[in-house]
Design a protein around this nucleic acid. Structure first.
Lengths: 211, 211
DNA sequence: TCCTGTAACCAATCAGTGATAGGTGATCAG
DNA sequence: CTGATCACCTATCACTGATTGGTTACAGGA
């Protein structure tokens, strides 16, 4: 990634996409370490080994770099959930295992999770201004995996009598709450992490499961 | 608050504190509408009717303005929770009612909640850098109210067999998750809000309550 | 081989940012 | 009247994201 500050050699004629990836990699690393707002375009450019204006040949604005990372983080999470999908859920333990994938993803890739769900900086207008917000395909697919499972459970009469979409949103937000607080407030006197996670999942499963 | 851009008359000799409050009021309004990062010190100064450097007579940095708002938001939430405290919880409905105070506060004062729990911008270093984070008195008091209630319930054997601190953190994070997502993603196709909240509370209560 | 188009890239510069330096004028106590 | 202090200002700093107007290197056609 060029940490020395030396110039990276000019790319061959059709190889601009390669440079683009280098920019994204450098930005992810820097954003993760210092936070998007504390990283300047000049720092990103230096990490890549190019001039600052060259960034604008690949991205219209700085926020667009963040937005691209955002989309990729979402896609990765959706993929993790889909990969962990072991078909119909039969027991509360099964449900807990599925939810654990979500939590594990967030804690294993805090920088990704941060950028995907917790960062308002990279797309401040979209997060701040209600009317600008639309549901990205990535969000839909992440949300969709969870919804399908719970709807299926509901159809088999195994959940409490709450419609599946409300159930999904409730469970999702509970997962998100734990993950985001664990990431955002590492200085908080949390109880032992595994204990916290397993009791959180227990709470969820107890709340969702019928009888 | 002086929206016209005209100069505010010079304060009398001992009245600097008054100006300080005007700055905080203007900053809260602007931060809420546009997000802290999209508001400049010059905009705040203009809203108050003073020059930009004058801000620095009252606050060391821009972030300190945000930090003060942060502290006040926390205090207000803690007060809401304490005010709503109706003594020992006897039924799951009682518990749900208490948790609802938290959610209602967040949705009634989204700007406060945002600044208190969701904003990394106003104190980016503290949120981003793990080692810098400590538990503020305001956080402790907010958290403390919830903990006392759940510990008391636990002592009477009315909760599932999870230690009260883990229970508290789990419940708190679930509340936070719902509130923060509702605030941050107003464009998401949420189910009807009251339904979502009541089913969320139902889930919590079912998860916490014994048998 | 020379030309031409274009992809890749850069130095110089813009307006706007948070913050600082140093000064002005009003108001008080003595 | 004097000196201190508070409230506040203009001018300016280094830095930010972004734009302008190029230059350089190379592929393919004549």
């Amino acid at each position: 990634m060029n940490t020395s500050g030396s110039r990276s050699p000019r790319k061959a004629k059709g190889q601009g996409a390669e440079r683009r990836e280098e920019i994204l990699a450098a930005a992810l690393k820097l954003f993760t370490e210092f936070g998007p707002y504390a990283v300047s375009t000049r720092q990103i450019a230096q990490a890549v080994g190019i001039s600052q204006p060259t960034l604008y040949a690949y991205f219209p604005t700085k926020d667009d770099i963040g937005r691209e990372l955002h989309g990729r983080a979402f896609a990765l999470l959706a993929q993790s959930l889909a990969d962990g999908d072991r078909g119909p859920i039969e027991t509360p333990e099964c449900l807990m295992q599925m939810l654990r994938i979500y939590i594990d993803f967030g804690l294993k890739h805090p920088e990704m999770y941060r950028i995907a769900f917790m960062s308002e900086s990279v797309q401040i207008k979209a997060w701040w201004k209600p009317q600008d917000v639309t549901l990205s395909p990535e969000t839909q697919s992440t949300y969709g995996v969870l919804f399908r499972e719970l709807a299926e459970l509901h159809g088999r009469g195994l959940t409490i009598d709450v419609e599946p979409s409300a159930l999904t949103q409730s469970v999702w937000s509970s997962m998100h709450g734990l993950v985001s607080l664990l990431i955002a407030k590492p200085g908080f006197p949390w109880v032992e992490r595994d204990l916290l996670i397993s009791s959180h999942l227990k709470l969820m499963a107890r709340g969702v499961w019928k009888a």
